[in-house]
Design a protein around this nucleic acid. Structure first.
Length: 570
RNA sequence: GCUCUCGUGGCUUAAUUGGAUAAAGCAGGGCCCUUCUAAGGCCAAGAUUGGAGGUUCGAGUCCUCCCGAGAGCACCA
């Protein structure tokens, strides 16, 4: 990539200046190559001169000029300029032209890479016996996008859906089901009925606190392999998985594995408990076994309850051990809500104390909560919004827009239905992906269903436009002609080549929203071009068709990485 | 109480990790379809980046204090 070349050129120039004794000896800091905000400051810029001012003891502009003088223009970089301490690089039209032909040649491989690394991504993780709530949407969508991005960069990706299918919550359900439902109806319980039982439990437990103790003992029974408890649990799991599959299908999500918490039981867990005790990482406390952290840096984390039932902390440790052994990943990504910050911090710290990981990175991609203006959704209190409700609403809104659209295309009823699904779901996904994952989202129907402006449908529409033009043109060979490009055309050229670096940046920062920003920017520039410049009737038809095809391709790649489908028409 | 996160036009968000004149969308105002999809485009308006200090060539971004919102803090996960 040009970006790396520029960094190398600058470094080389500084070294030369050191040899010539113009600059004193010092360790050269990392050369950051950025895109300036303003176009008249070039396509790339380097701020190293400003940083070196103190060490070199010259004013930044002088330094920048000295460095500039040592770099010769090349095929790709036609002009280098020192302006108020910045070194600005202007890319040549030849470079832009070449980039377009690379895009047209490589198609959906453009921007992809090879790698030997492996990443395990833990995402989605809905809870058994509860409908798929809107709270799990973020993890599912961001996690899937990260999966796609890393895969695009050549990583071996393993997606693991760490289902919440174990724990005291099942003690609560078993208690309720045994008490209120006849055994012959156990398998017939729907997901909504299970949720209702769960909500009722917490309501009733306010009056009868001893129910909590009962629930714990039922979970304990489940862990010991009690047959009746297991039957009820299995019924809950079966119902839930069927439900989740339906939602995943609607969302177009496929996760490689679904090794829930229940997968990690028995002997491996006992081994971990023993290992923790042997390494003096854990200790007894009030009948339970907890991990204590040096200097009380973190609050203690419980691994076994006083009744010797396991906690999710212990199950998470077992999960890491299994993933290490099975997949040997370089990075563990946990796409989990920010409310689990402390838990994951404790977990990662314990794993390091145990010496299980050395070079491997453990990353918590903490997404903010979807919440009401004051406070979070609570399943226990039944204050949640089911994802399906949101999806259906989005689809019906998309349908309304289709029916009132002003474009002169004719759609069959079947097409309308397909389009409304793709567009409605795309809108919801984009809404989530387009903002930084760390931010909280205040739930609002207006916002989550937004379909104009900076939205999924805007990008989908733009791609469909590109494809429609290409179809009408029936061109075979596409080439960019350098002469006589107008501003709108140049703007596309000066944006589209950034795609590969944006993908890399999105991966490094676990931030799919960077791809959204880029795609929106490119789509905007294309739509301006589209409005200003006739394509098919133009003398510059070839060039314009090449731009049209390149934009269509890159936007398609962006949407694919984000996990957003594209309708054939809209 | 302790710890962490966040605060950017009326609303929802961006800002390449400390860079150049803070960028979009929505809402509201004005314009553009006999021309390739108007779910589009253009123009105008809208900001003391919660407040006060500090660090430096440079701060929305880093540090300190204050204000406001949210989350977490042992037998839920």
């Amino acid at each position: 990539m040009v970006k790396e070349n520029i960094a190398k050129l600058v470094e080389k120039a500084i070294k030369t200046l050191q040899k010539e004794k113009v600059f004193p000896e010092f360790v050269i800091p990392e050369v950051l190559v950025e895109h300036p905000d303003k176009q008249n400051n070039g396509d790339y810029s380097v701020n190293i001169a400003l940083k070196l001012a103190k060490t070199v003891k010259k004013n930044p502009q002088e330094i920048a000029e000295a460095i500039c003088a040592k770099i010769k223009p090349s095929k790709a970089v036609e002009k280098i300029e020192a302006v108020s301490g910045f070194i600005n690089f202007y890319l040549s039209m030849e470079f832009f032209q070449q980039e377009i032909s690379v895009i047209l040649r490589q198609k959906d491989k453009y921007g992809s890479q090879q790698s030997k690394k492996t990443v395990v991504i833990d995402y989605s993780a809905p809870n058994i016996a509860k409908p798929f709530g809107i709270g799990h949407l973020r993890s599912t969508i961001i996690g899937q996008a990260l999966y796609n991005i890393y895969q695009f960069l050549g990583w071996k990706c393993i997606g693991d859906n760490h289902l919440g299918d174990w724990g005291t919550q099942f003690g609560k359900l078993i208690y309720q089901i045994k008490k209120k439902i006849k055994p012959k109806d156990w398998k017939k319980l729907s997901i909504n009925e299970l949720e209702k039982l769960y909500v009722e439990f917490h309501k009733e437990a306010e009056t009868y606190p001893e129910m909590e103790e009962e629930a714990r003992s039922y979970f304990k029974k489940l862990e010991k392999g009690d047959k009746e408890a297991k039957t009820i649990w299995q019924a809950c799991v079966d119902t839930s998985l069927k439900e989740f599959d339906r939602i995943y299908k609607m969302l177009g999500i496929k996760i490689d594995y679904a090794l829930g918490e229940s997968f990690y039981g028995g002997e491996p867990m006992q081994k971990i408990v023993a290992e923790l005790a042997k390494k003096k990482i854990s200790a007894k406390s009030q009948g339970a076994i907890v991990i204590k952290y040096a200097n009380d840096e973190l609050p203690p984390a419980m691994i076994l309850k006083s009744d010797k039932a396991t906690t999710y902390f212990l199950r998470d440790l077992a999960t890491i051990k299994y993933r290490l052994k099975t997949w040997r990943p370089d990075i563990f990504v946990y796409e989990i809500g920010a409310d689990q910050y402390l838990h994951l911090k404790q977990l990662f710290s314990a794993v390091k104390s145990l010496g299980w990981v050395k070079k491997q990175k453990l990353v918590h991609v903490a997404h903010g909560m979807i919440r009401w203006e004051h406070g979070k959704f609570s399943t226990r209190k039944g204050q949640t919004i089911h994802l399906e409700e949101v999806l259906q609403e989005a689809i019906s809104r998309a349908m309304k827009i289709i029916e009132s659209a002003k474009a002169n295309i004719v759609l069959s009823e079947k097409e309308k239905k397909e389009i409304s699904e793709i567009v409605g779901i795309g809108a919801i996904k984009y809404n989530d992906l387009s903002q930084h994952h760390s931010r909280d989202i205040i739930f609002s129907w207006e916002k989550i269903l937004s379909m104009d402006g900076n939205s999924g449908p805007y990008l989908q529409y733009t791609v469909v436009r590109c494809q429609s033009v290409a179809k009408k043109a029936k061109a075979k060979k596409l080439e960019v002609n350098l002469t006589g490009l107008n501003e709108a055309e140049k703007n596309i050229l000066k944006t589209i080549y950034k795609f590969p670096e944006i993908i890399q940046l999105a991966a490094d920062n676990f931030s799919p929203n960077l791809i959204c920003n880029f795609a929106h920017d490119l789509a905007q520039k294309y739509n301006l071009f589209y409005n200003q410049c006739p394509i098919l009737s133009s003398e510059n038809k070839e060039t314009r068709l090449a731009l049209n095809a390149a934009v269509g391709q890159v936007l398609k790649s962006c949407l694919k990485l984000l996990g957003i489908s594209i309708p054939k028409k809209m």
